[in-house]
């Protein structure tokens, strides 16, 4: 009896230790990375450099938050590159058509781009749920459709957004950081609110944690999924708006690289790929890890290809850490 109790306790404390490790490991990695780069090159720690990292990270953070909701449900959304391109291009066309400056009716282009993102996400969810196509394939295909659509809309051209007011996202600073960083922060809080304070947010965890249970409890899982993909589409479009604000160009290539960046960030941040574990704060840490590596490697003068290798290793480490291998009998 006594023996059972002790071993039970050990198991509990081991599980707690493991849980704590998994929970805090990403943040620890981020701090270690910052300390390492700062040691190699003190200029890394300057406010201006952190502003540079955050400028680069803001659009990717929005996209990564979008996909976080999907990964929490145990699905995956790979449509971000196409959705971001379409939203960016739609925004740019409407913005220029409605006057080309935020001081006119052109501001309507912003909600319109978000609507387009929502619509694309909604279709994505419908295709996945109603046609019973795995989310991986449905969203990947929708992504290709989006890239193609953006190509047709632009004919391969770049559209420049020169409006000083809109570009204020990048050029205007408060406390040393450009406005776009604060916009991204605001949407992070919105995402956190959705995750913790709304039924939809809790339902994401329910679906990801055990879909059978959720269904048995009377949850309309299909509806949750479609709403999840729609929500992700909205966040992709916010990412697109910030990306256009950062570069001043909307084109088919605006969406490039977001797939790799966002999925890597979500996984490195500690959100489990099979759902139910993690959240938007993990994603914030993950995005920062990815961009601190990108920035720090150049700052200390390491060649670019080492960056990719380091990121790849981090992804594997993150998955190893967040996987309880005893509970998994096989991996597909």
């Amino acid at each position: 009896m006594a023996i059972t109790e002790t071993s039970g306790k050990t198991r509990v404390s081991a599980a707690l230790g493991r849980e704590a490790l998994v929970k805090w490991a990403p943040l620890l990695v981020l701090l270690v990375l910052c300390a390492f780069f700062a040691l190699m090159e003190p200029r890394f720690l300057s406010t201006r450099n952190f502003a540079r990292i955050l400028i680069a990270a803001s659009p990717a953070l929005m996209v990564a938050i979008g996909v976080t909701f999907i990964i929490l449900m145990g699905s995956i959304d790979l449509s971000m590159e196409g959705t971001v391109s379409v939203c960016a291009v739609t925004f740019a066309f409407c913005f220029l058509w409605l006057g080309g400056t935020l001081a006119s009716w052109a501001w309507l282009a912003i909600p319109l781009a978000m609507l387009v993102g929502a619509a694309l996400g909604f279709i994505n969810g419908l295709v996945h749920v109603k046609l019973k196509i795995p989310s991986f394939m449905a969203s990947l295909a929708m992504g290709f459709v989006g890239t193609g659509l953006a190509m047709v809309m632009t004919g391969g051209d770049r559209i420049r957004i020169e409006d000083e007011l809109y570009r204020g996202l990048l050029t205007e600073r408060a406390l040393g950081f450009p406005l776009m960083v604060y916009v991204a922060g605001l949407f992070l809080l919105v995402a956190w609110f959705i995750q913790t304070r709304t039924t939809l947010g809790r339902n994401f965890y329910a679906v990801g944690g055990g879909e059978d249970l959720a269904t048995a409890s009377g949850l309309n899982v299909n509806r949750v999924r479609i709403m999840g993909f729609t929500l992700a589409g909205v966040f992709f479009s916010v990412g697109a708006l910030l990306a256009v604000g950062r570069i001043g160009i909307a084109e088919t290539a605006t969406g490039n690289n977001f797939m790799f960046l966002s999925i890597t960030a979500v996984v490195v941040g500690g959100t489990a790929l099979w759902g139910g574990i993690g959240g938007v704060w993990n994603t914030l840490v993950g995005v920062l890890i990815v961009f601190v590596i990108g920035n720090g490697m150049v700052v200390i003068g390491l060649p670019g290809y080492v960056q990719d290798a380091v990121l790849g290793i981090l992804v594997i480490l993150a998955v190893i850490l967040s996987t309880d291998r005893r509970s998994i009998s096989f991996v597909k």
Partner: peptide
């Protein structure tokens, strides 16, 4: 000072240039 690949990509170039500015100012 440095030669870094930016993969013919506008956004990558943007990031690399920012990091160059930190390193070399």
């Amino acid at each position: 000072l440095a030669a870094e690949p930016a993969d013919w990509d506008t956004q990558k170039a943007n990031q690399v240039m920012s990091a160059f500015l930190t390193r070399y100012g």
